[in-house]
Design a protein around this nucleic acid. Structure first.
Lengths: 133, 133
DNA sequence: TCCATATATTCCCGTTGACAAATATAGCAC
DNA sequence: GTGCTATATTTGTCAACGGGAATATATGGA
């Protein structure tokens, strides 16, 4: 199995879980910390952490520590074809009512919204967005 | 979990296996029967059959019986966002050396090649293509 | 009917992954 | 140091999945 095929398989395994899809939808709005993920999606903290770790192992997200908080963001894609898949996913996710509700809750908590659909690069937002500080 | 989200999860689960990705790449050339799948991919027949069944359960492929042979083809996508994902996948698959080799072998056996990249509809090819008759 | 071919399914086994609950680690404030 | 908060990891359990090998089913032909 060559690198291209392995890379695709890895990406699709990472996408093959609804919790991770919801997390990725949140991340299209910019950086999000773990507390906002588990508050917004209403899932237990260990569950958020576990899926975020999975996404990081798969290379789809990157982290930045800021004191107590760890901010997750979409990783810059090295593989252009993978990027195309992700762009299609991003548009598809916007169609899900569950994800719309997640994004509404995130907006209430942090004031952040998804970027314009044609903006394919992850938005790196350096202002802190957690609401628990 | 709503319908959109469930649909995406189902599709990604189906795509999250390299054997199935290779099969889907074959199917971009049109209808293929099981014998051509397992000959071309050089995998045991039960393995080909099992993964084809998985793809059918997931709604990604459809079948047509023709005597002893069962021809598989890509299903027409009802969901446009899923179709966009699949189109991105189609282009990504063309980058894999393993898949290029699979397609070469298929071409040797049946004379069929992938369609033009901008042809997003599955090609329904009604001529028999198996080489064992 | 019997045989041959194409395809599907079953059985067994090992691995992965998802979950909840509990526990551990890391950084900050005091 | 002690506490407090945010995050990560471990534990145990369970279901899903992948693989090979063997077997079953279905169709067509002599």
């Amino acid at each position: 199995m060559d690198k291209q095929l392995t890379a695709l398989e890895t990406v699709f395994k990472a996408l093959a879980d609804s919790t991770r899809l919801r997390i990725l939808a949140l991340l299209t709005t910019g950086e999000v910390c773990v507390c906002n993920v588990h508050d917004t999606l209403r899932i237990p903290q260990p569950k958020a952490s576990r899926h975020l770790a999975y996404l990081r192992r798969a290379g789809l997200v990157e982290t930045r520590r800021d004191g107590l908080w760890i901010h997750y963001r979409l990783a810059k894609r090295s593989n252009p074809v993978v990027a195309a898949v992700e762009e299609a996913v991003r548009e598809a996710l916007a169609e899900s009512p569950a994800i719309r509700r997640d994004l509404e809750r995130l907006k209430k908590q942090t004031g952040c919204e998804p970027a314009a659909p044609d903006n394919t690069l992850p938005i790196i937002q350096l202002t802190a967005r957690h609401t628990r500080a």
